[in-house]
Design a protein around this nucleic acid. Sequence first.
RNA 1: AGCGGAGUAGAGUAGAGGUAACUCACGAGGCUCAUAACCUCGGGACACCAGUUCGAUUCUGGUCUCCGCAACCA
Length: 483
Amino acid sequence: MNKPFYITTTLPYVNAEPHIGHAMEFVRADVIARYKKSLGYDVFFNTGTDEHGIKILEGAEKEGMNVQEYVDRNAARFKELYPKLGITDDIHFIRTTDDKHIKAAQEIWKRCFDNGYIYKKEYEAKYCVGCELYKTDSELVNGKCEVHPNRDIEIIKEENYFFAFSKTESKLRELYEKNPTLVVPDFRFNEIKAFLDRGLEDFSISRLKSKMSWGVPVPGDDEHVMYVWFDALTSYISTLGWPEIDGFEKYWEQIGAEKREVTQYCGKDNLRQQSAIWQGMLLAAGLPPTTNIIIDGFIISHGQKMSKSIGNVINPFDIIEMFKELTDYPEDVLRFILLHEVPSFEDGDLTVEAIKIAYTAYLANGIGNLTSRIMKMATVNQVRGKSLKGRVIREIKNFDINASLKEIIHEVSLIDEYIATNEPFKVVKIDAEKGKEMIEHCLNSLESVAEDLSVYLPRTSTKILECIRSNAMPEKSLFNRLP
RNA sequence: AGCGGAGUAGAGUAGAGGUAACUCACGAGGCUCAUAACCUCGGGACACCAGUUCGAUUCUGGUCUCCGCAACCA
């Protein structure tokens, strides 16, 4: 029985188009999933779409659509994305409008309720529709939400269900103390610890159905639906079929495993929801927590956040389009750019110029050219490498994908240097045996690089390995130079 | 204001208590296996001010500057 490994992205909210930040998160989670698979883990890789809440309702109204049709259409747009990004095809996809998700959301509600973490109370609250969050006075600036100053704060006075977030405080603190790598990177962990130290406030987790109907019905109360975050976070276990135990025991609880490995990827704007609220919900329901929450930075361009008005938006599909004529592996180009040019945990800056430079330096002049020169020597001299059976691919330490990929790319330079210094192409003409040994060394080095690349650039890797195994030049350049 | 991040060669980034590395650009040379690719050498940088230290660009404190916390948001 293989060791289980669970990984999920956050589920994008379907009121907007897929953008490069989504693409990066999916690709990174895919790299970790492939990496763990290569180590022999039994991997459950999840993603999906978040489809409830008032902004969805508003979006559907704006387009004059039936809400279900609206989310069906938008969810499909995200679903189409994965093959285009070279994401492994055994990915699981949960929609928060799926039956099994709705059942799971209701079940976690019941458990939190039974455990005394949900209560009803009359209250008057300030709510920012933009954030889908209730705001405390201290969070408001001039009576407006800091994040959405152009939207009015709604005053809501009604009877509502509350999540006793404050009751989870000590358990949450214990969780943080016992798991020093729960949140990666550490500066994000510090942020959330500081949030906890400021004290937790209970928050409303329901809305009156009469005011906002597009949500999961609250069990046992026809008048309320769940607050979108409460339902959406449950998707990480509803995808496993929870409360059915099969998938949940295997991939989330990981009963019998030496060490549980339950990983979530999210952007820095999701820090609080994933590392505090969701963990609090799990604690309240009596379920085991996540073990690793990886926080991505944002992608900016020309030193600024991407924006349509500034005109610096980089769309993932445009990058694929840009390289379609130059290579058979344009999705690997996009993956390379996201993985190599953007730091693992901090904001990264992407520009069209920088993308072209990186393509030329590392893919065309680097991996592509190296494959050509080695395979030429190998085919002309009929040298075959020894198969590197049982080799383990390069380690990804502490989820620092960027650093690991850079190490692999550095190997490419070292092989180029070896060839220039030792000149096997020349030696083989004078001393065939010695020359062939050198070429074999090159082939083995190339094979190692290709294997290491298999989780980052799967199709490119497969192609190089094919060339090595069949002792053939690539029929055309892997990555042609830009015009 | 607050919170968070950052200030390193012409540009973009690494890095670490003790010769500052990489990519692109620039100059000189080499090689011909390769995608006018590849290799070598060279010029050129640690925001500022204190402190700790035998020694800091790396640690501490302060100053200044920039970025995000608006939109479509990961």
